[in-house]
Design a protein around this nucleic acid. Structure first.
Lengths: 210, 210
DNA sequence: ATTATCTATAGATCTATAGATAATGC
DNA sequence: ATTATCTATAGATCTATAGATAATGC
């Protein structure tokens, strides 16, 4: 059993390369991966990567943009207007946490690149500068109603958003340690994640009481 | 004005190399820095780095261990037994946040290495496996007293610790974006950090109410 | 004499390109 | 014909070492 995957040759090498690149970049970041490594796992030669994507930075960009789109989509969930603010908030927190559970490497991947990669940083910055205010303003409106009705304490939308994201990403950022120090098997791990998710919901809801 | 620093030649090249290495590794991680770059900034030639530290990994290890020691020291603050649990908790949260303010690159540095560097990961794991239970158990004792006295709600020491660390590290992890999207100048930035610190204290204290 | 620093270089990558060959679509 | 894939290689790193020279401590 070689490392090669001959990744569904059906969809062609172009896609296979992108898939393998995504997997490796998520694990090790831009600097941690070489086009030679990607080629080896894809099962082609290294030149082919440049035939399709010209440069390594270009290929990385493609992967990164896909991930950024995915993250933004996470925050564009449609609200059920029949539910209370609190019920909707719980759904948002849990679905954000669940999305991370299915993409556990994502938070580190994004954070790592906003630190080091000066070519992607401007993309992210612009994306955020464009998207964040819309998201925050919409959330702020909702919050104000609750605050004015004295159903929750006074807090800014940005602070609340940061609280939720902070709490949700943490276990995934520290996974390599957490698993070693606290986790024994897969069942225990899932149990621990469920508990943590519930604890985050409790923390946020309690922290909002007037 | 060259990039060279001729870093206090008094304390000798050995220390200068360590200092420059620390700075660069903190900014860009192990893979993002070459011994050639370090040498250029130190103002010596690249061979000297290997004369003192033999390998790049070795040099990195030295930097990393220092930082890990520093972080552990953050959690070994002496408590003033005249203060209430809540007062002591606030001091802990704030001093942890302040320590990060003075070492803003530290959280990302640590998280990045526990992801990628398989030689350091075992050091960290062992350190945590050794240190974490002591810290957590001590904290758990304190917590139980408060919980039994109904002064705070039921929560595990691990969850509370994770909450605090999560909330505190976030602004530093996302600094490159935050500064661009929300911050105009240095004064505004410090103001924002102060506000965030206070908001974290509020969040934690409120979340603990019975 | 010993320790610190330098020059030079081997050997291992790695990215990107040029040019050859194989596969495919009309 | 056009597109996909390969081989070969240039040129740029980068790490680590060997061996020469300079500085220092007795």
């Amino acid at each position: 059993m070689k490392e090669k995957e001959k990744n569904n040759n059906k969809d062609g090498m172009e896609i296979s390369i992108l898939n393998v690149a995504e997997k490796l970049f998520l694990e090790k970041g831009f600097n941690g991966v070489s086009t030679t490594q990607i080629a080896k796992i894809v099962g082609c030669n290294q030149a082919l990567i440049h035939y399709y994507y010209r440069t390594k930075a270009n290929l990385f960009q493609k992967v990164f943009e896909n991930k950024l789109k995915y993250i933004i989509s996470l925050f564009e969930t449609i609200d059920d207007k029949n539910l209370s603010f609190q019920e909707r908030l719980v759904i948002k927190i849990k679905s954000h946490f669940d999305a991370l559970s299915q993409n556990p490497l994502l938070p580190m991947f994004i954070l790592n690149e906003i630190r080091s990669n000066s070519s992607t940083i401007s993309i992210i910055r612009e994306t955020f500068k464009r998207e964040a205010p819309i998201l925050i303003n919409r959330f702020e409106e909702e919050l104000k109603i609750e605050i004015n009705a004295k159903r929750i304490r006074n807090i800014s939308a940005l602070d609340l958003l940061m609280n939720i994201i902070s709490l949700n990403i943490f276990v995934f950022l520290t996974r390599p340690i957490m698993e070693y120090v606290f986790v024994i098997d897969e069942t225990k791990k899932n149990e621990m994640l469920e508990n943590r998710k519930q604890e985050i919901v409790n923390t946020i809801l309690n922290s909002l009481r007037p």
